[in-house]
């Protein structure tokens, strides 16, 4: 464990807590893409198949349970909570995410570390996570200026993977045989997708204006 990875995990945890806070406090999920939340639930379930077979550390197990639990709780809330579900932007959240699922799965069948069920699903979850934010970015684009909690959620989510890239560089420099090409390349693509959002987020923060994304 290094400081970059810890910062990344904490930032990731903050992004989930910000989202849960927004939904719980305001009983509203306007501006949040259910499709992105469902993709994240699939990412965590398919990535943590080793939850009960591999014990790495208490921290690792607890964080896995938190990520799986919170992502499923958010999806449940947005789908079935009688108050929250009314504020879901159903007509704006129309990203055809089956494409993302299909492409990620096919890519995982071709590119993986070992051809075992667990490794193919692990690679699938890595590829899927890189593109899972797309429905949310499209929704932010369509709904124009975002309310700041939705913007903060995306900001922390992007920052977490940027910290992980620093972690991979650090591990590559300090551990001889550290190679995680699948994670590194996918993580770079993921962070790049946030780049334009970060730009507009910084501009709005600098001008102390509401976040305006070009339609």
């Amino acid at each position: 464990m290094n400081i970059f990875r810890l910062a990344g995990d904490m930032t990731h945890l903050i992004s989930v807590l910000v989202l849960l806070l927004k939904i719980y406090a305001t009983k509203s999920c306007s501006g949040i893409s259910l499709k992105t939340q469902e993709l994240y639930a699939i990412v965590f379930v398919t990535r943590y198949l080793d939850l009960f077979t591999d014990f790495i550390s208490l921290y690792n197990t607890v964080m896995k349970l938190v990520f799986i639990g919170s992502s499923l709780a958010i999806v449940w809330c947005m789908r079935y909570h009688r108050v929250v579900r009314r504020s879901y932007d159903r007509e704006l959240d129309t990203f055809r995410y089956w494409i993302l699922l299909g492409v990620s799965f096919i890519l995982a069948l071709v590119l993986h570390e070992k051809f075992t069920l667990q490794e193919v699903f692990w690679a699938f979850s890595i590829y899927l996570e890189a593109v899972a934010i797309l429905p949310q970015l499209v929704l932010l684009q369509r709904s124009g200026n975002v309310d700041n909690l939705a913007g903060q959620y995306v900001f922390f989510l992007g920052a977490y993977r940027a910290f992980y890239i620093l972690n991979w560089i650090y591990r590559y420099l300090t551990e001889q045989r550290f190679t995680r090409w699948i994670s590194c390349v996918s993580g770079l693509v993921q962070t790049a997708l946030y780049a334009d959002f970060f730009y507009y987020y910084f501009i709005s923060w600098k001008n102390n204006a509401k976040l305006q994304l070009p339609a």
Binding site: D50, D54, Q118, Y164
Partner: peptide, 10 residues
Amino acid sequence: SSSINGHDEL
């Protein structure tokens, strides 16, 4: 300690 399948990251 990295796990059996080497994935010790979240």
